[in-house]
Every structure is written in C-alpha cells, then in structure tokens.
C-alpha cells in the first residue's frame, strides 16, 4: 500500500522536497494521508451522498449532478486541508512541496470520489444515475 501511494503522489509532484524528508513522506505522510483521505473519508462522503442524502432522505432534492460535484469539492477541500494539517503535525520542513502534495491529494480525492461513485451509486434510491 505504501508503494502505491508513493507511486501516485510522486507521479505528479515528483520526489519529496527537501530530500531529507523523503523517509518521512514515503513511510508516514503518503500512506497515512492517502489512506485516511483518499480511501476512508472519500468512501464515507460517497456513502453519505448516495445513501444518506439520496436514500434515507426520501426526497430527490440532492440528486442533481451539481450536488454531486458540490460534495466532491467539499471532499477535495477536506483532502487538501488534511494533507497540510498532517504535514504540520509531523513537523515536516516547510516547503512549497507541502502545498503541491495537498493539491495532488485533492486531485486524487476527486478521482477516488468518482471511482467510489461508480462503485456505490447503483443501490441508491434517488441518485443511481448521478452524475451519469
């Protein structure tokens, strides 16, 4: 799992900067932030969208694509914020790389949000066809 996250992040933002922080990013920050935001929180947000907002709540008020996009953006914002927060928590050397990493994390959260959507949407009462 560590290597998957390392591959994903370094694919778009390159090796950690400054290089001395490489072990910290690769063995702590990448897997922790990836696991929590991309997998856990994103899956939770998708489930909330499809099975709380569009299932338990009976009205089809939130079934439009822009509602879906709104939740995706909220999830991306959480992914961005959590990445920055987690870097600071681990006292990583301040560098623009922290923000590049947060952007990458937000980007991947959107990708994962889409993937989880495709996976979960079919059992939703009101949003089985959202976003398409």
């Amino acid at each position: 799992m560590k290597n998957i996250f390392r591959f994903l992040y370094e694919l778009i933002i390159g090796r950690p900067e400054p290089p001395m922080e490489t072990p910290l990013y690769r063995s702590e920050i990448f897997p922790d932030v990836g696991g929590i935001t991309l997998l856990l929180i994103t899956a939770l947000m998708v489930l909330i969208y499809y099975y709380v907002l569009n299932h338990l709540i009976q009205t089809a008020r939130f079934s439009h694509w822009y509602h879906w996009l709104g939740v995706l953006l909220v999830n991306a914002a959480i992914a961005f914020g959590y990445a920055v927060y987690y870097c600071r928590l681990n006292e990583v050397t301040p560098d623009s790389y922290v923000y590049w990493f947060a952007f990458a994390n937000a980007f991947y959260s959107a990708v994962f949000f889409l993937l989880f959507s495709l996976l979960f949407k079919w059992r939703s009462n009101n949003a089985a066809r959202t976003p398409f």
Binding site: R15, P19, M20, E21, T22, P23
Partner: peptide
C-alpha cells in the same frame, strides 16, 4: 547531518546517520 550543508537528492536511512540512500 540530514538537512544542511548538502547537495543532491539523497536522504538518510535512519536517525543514526551512517547510511545514505539515493534514488
């Protein structure tokens, strides 16, 4: 010393500072 007086993209294998890793 991990972060100062250095060049290149190496990093230390552990806190002991006796093994340097390069990608």
């Amino acid at each position: 010393i991990p972060g100062s007086g250095r060049s290149g993209s190496w990093y230390l294998a552990d806190a002991e500072g006796k093994t340097i890793f390069v990608d």
